[in-house]
């Protein structure tokens, strides 16, 4: 049994069919690069996995359970985390609150009053998370909007890892980063693989894909065109698939 199995995924927006029957399998602890030209359907495919978009037809199973009809919150519970290209952080909220957004630990006064957010625990655990990722930020209590792009990317990753996911989807995590920050993100992906977390990495930067991934999947016009083991292919072959110039 594989960790994630997609079969026959279709999705249209009005008259435009973006996904035309996608099949994809991801094993536990595997790092898969998903590449393709603009408009190939990469982001749409990822959002059908995270649950932001419903599928028109097809089936998604995760860890043995069918999750096709679950909402994004339930899929997070099941262990799927997605890090969006725009990071989806709340800029005026502090670092710690962002990391725990949507899953705030709570406690009760005297066991009767309604649950209130355990801010001390949020701060402590957020700090531990940031430290374990080996990154530097000025303070976990400053608004996320005041951090650099690389630091914000780190916060988004920290948020994804806080609840021990089994699969993390990253949409162009390195596109807007400085060279040194890219290395730091790739290092984090390797660190995740060692901990058995599977990753799907969407990227235009084939360099980064080849550095981080075990397998490269090429998407073109809503179909999976090819699925290549990294050590049996090279960048030239992947590019030829992307631009439809193979053989």
């Amino acid at each position: 049994m594989s960790l994630l199995e997609l079969s026959g995924i279709e999705r249209s927006f009005g008259p435009v069919q973006v996904l035309r029957g996608v099949d994809l399998v991801v094993e536990a602890g595997e790092v898969v690069g998903l590449v393709g030209d603009n408009g190939a359907g990469k982001s749409t495919l990822m959002k059908t996995i995270s649950g932001v978009y419903a599928t028109d037809s097809g089936q998604i199973t995760f860890d043995g359970d069918e999750i096709t009809d679950l909402d994004p919150g339930s899929r997070r519970e099941a262990g799927i985390e997605m890090i969006y290209q725009d990071l989806a952080l709340a800029p005026q909220q502090d670092v710690a609150n962002n990391i725990f957004l949507g899953r705030e630990p709570t406690k009760r006064f005297l066991g009767i009053l309604p649950a209130f957010v355990d801010k001390a625990r949020i701060d402590a655990e957020a700090q531990r998370m940031i430290d374990s990722l080996g990154v530097q930020i000025p303070s976990i209590q400053i608004p996320v909007g005041m951090l650099s792009g690389g630091q914000q990317q780190t916060i988004a990753i920290a948020r994804a890892l806080t609840f021990k996911p089994k699969l993390v989807i990253m949409d162009e995590p390195t596109a807007a980063l400085a060279v040194r920050e890219v290395e730091s993100v790739l290092r984090l992906i390797r660190q995740m693989r060692e901990e058995g977390i599977a990753t799907i990495l969407i990227s235009h930067r084939l360099n980064d894909v080849f550095k981080a991934c075990d397998r490269v999947v090429v998407l073109r016009r809503g179909n999976v065109i090819t699925d290549l083991k990294k050590d049996r292919t090279d960048m030239a072959e992947v590019v030829s698939y992307i631009v439809d110039a193979h053989e």
Partner: peptide, 25 residues
């Protein structure tokens, strides 16, 4: 200021996509 409901309210006002992506209804 102190409940998940309040945190979600501020997050929703800050970045609706962020709120939705983290599973907030």
């Amino acid at each position: 200021a102190h409940t998940p409901f309040g945190h979600h309210t501020l997050a929703l006002g800050d970045n609706e996509d962020s709120a939705r992506a983290t599973g907030i209804n």
